[in-house]
Simulated scan of single mutants.
Amino acid sequence: MRFPQSSSPTSRRNLLLGTAAAGAMFAAGCTSNENNDSDENSKQAANTANDKPGKAVTIGFAGPQADHGWLNAINEQAKRRAKEYKDVTLEITEGSNDTAQQIGQIETLINKKVDVLVILPADGKALTQVGLKAMRAGIPVVNLDRVFASPQAYRCWIGGDNYGMGLNAGHYIGEQLKDKKNAKVIELAGIDNLELTRQRTAGFNDALKNYPNIKKVGRQAAEFTVESGQSKMAQLLQAHSDFDALWNHDDDQGVGAERAIKQAGRDDFLMVGGAGAKHAMDAIKADNTVLKATVLYPPTMAASAIDLARALGQGKGVGGLAELEIPASLTLYSAVVTKDNVDEYLPTGFS
């Protein structure tokens, strides 16, 4: 996931939701209140999002170029979810990594007077002004993952937890190695000048502090590509003949890392991936490689963004919550997928 900017878990009012819980919540029927014998509960039921057809809503969707498996999954999740609603029309742009071009695409959607916008900006800071423009035009914006520089540029933010990815990867590895004396781990990170990479590494390092028997002995930064994953992993393998675990930030670059591992004939350590690609889940299920787990950065957030946009366009809240309005911020949970639970998450795996 090549994100020029990502959210900080401490910089906004986070509501922590698991991926499955978020999807179920947004698509839930009427309300989760068990006791509906009061006027207030009836009012909440009437204002809560549900999957019954309602007011027609046109949603404009603008994202970056799908030049990565995760970004392509984002687009597919949005399209698939929109098709599930008879009352939703989706206006989707081609996607671009050129900020000026993406701004132009969003301005076209504003001029078309769509009811709601879902925007995954190529660069959150650079596209803040067009988010503000939409909000000032009375078009609510659902800011997806890469956050705008101003909270006034969006009505709701929804995205993943990069720090949580590292934290959960570190805790998983720590639990596997907690009884091993002088355990060693290495890290294959993403692009180092991206905030998301720094957050993932920070979470990983913080988790390892709970395991004094474990020492991180090596780290290389790749570029979220198969080629970079292979070359950087080969360097790590050459530099470290003995280690017990590897955390790789991204399953796409993990394809290259696995090639390097196979070429080196190494199987003396466990590997944890990141994001939740289908090929990684298939390997975890087969249990015949060093890859034993992956930490999710769920592309299902795009489907949930469509749910939120629909609710905004219809003036409804969210099933499962007592509030009449949708939250200002939703941070999705980075679940660890292992052989024990992989069947549950396989449907969310992306190619």
Rank of each mutant, 00 (worst) to 15 (best):
A46Q: 08
E84G: 14
G265D: 11
R155V: 09
D252Q: 15
K278L: 12
A286W: 09
K181Y: 15
G313D: 05
T31Q: 03
E84V: 11
A239V: 12
V318W: 04
V57K: 10
D340F: 03
R136E: 15
P9Y: 05
T99L: 02
A222N: 02
T48I: 10
W157L: 01
Y297N: 02
A222H: 00
K113R: 06
T128E: 01
G256H: 00
S38Q: 12
G69T: 13
G229I: 04
A305M: 01
K216G: 13
S6G: 13
E195K: 01
A222L: 02
V217H: 14
K278P: 04
D206Y: 08
Q253H: 01
E325D: 14
D267H: 09
R80I: 07
Q238H: 04
K316S: 03
D123R: 04
R219F: 04
L16P: 06
T197K: 00
R219D: 03
R219Q: 05
L312A: 09
S6N: 13
F3L: 09
M25G: 11
A309T: 07
Y333R: 10
P327L: 15
N288C: 03
N205S: 11
G164S: 13
D87F: 14
A28R: 03
A126F: 10
A78R: 11
A234W: 02
A264S: 06
A56T: 06
G131L: 00
P151K: 01
W70D: 10
Y333M: 07
S11T: 05
Q230W: 03
M1I: 02
N213A: 15
M281S: 02
H68F: 04
T197C: 03
N14R: 14
E34T: 08
A45G: 11
V217P: 08
D39S: 12
A202S: 11
D340C: 04
L109F: 13
E91I: 08
D340A: 06
G349T: 04
L16S: 08
E34W: 07
A73F: 05
K339A: 13
L321H: 03
S6V: 09
I139Q: 00
L109W: 07
Q101N: 14
T58Y: 12
Q101T: 13
E175L: 12
P64W: 03
W247V: 11
V130D: 13
L196H: 01
G18P: 10
A62W: 10
K180H: 06
K215Q: 15
I306R: 06
K86L: 09
G29E: 15
T331H: 06
G170T: 06
V57N: 06
A335F: 11
D37Y: 14
A222V: 04
E325R: 14
F243K: 04
A62N: 08
N143Q: 07
L144N: 02
G60M: 08
A82G: 10
G203N: 07
A100Y: 07
L308V: 14
K184P: 08
V226R: 08
L127W: 02
S150G: 05
D98L: 03
I261G: 09
A234I: 04
K184W: 05
G274L: 14
K209W: 07
V295M: 01
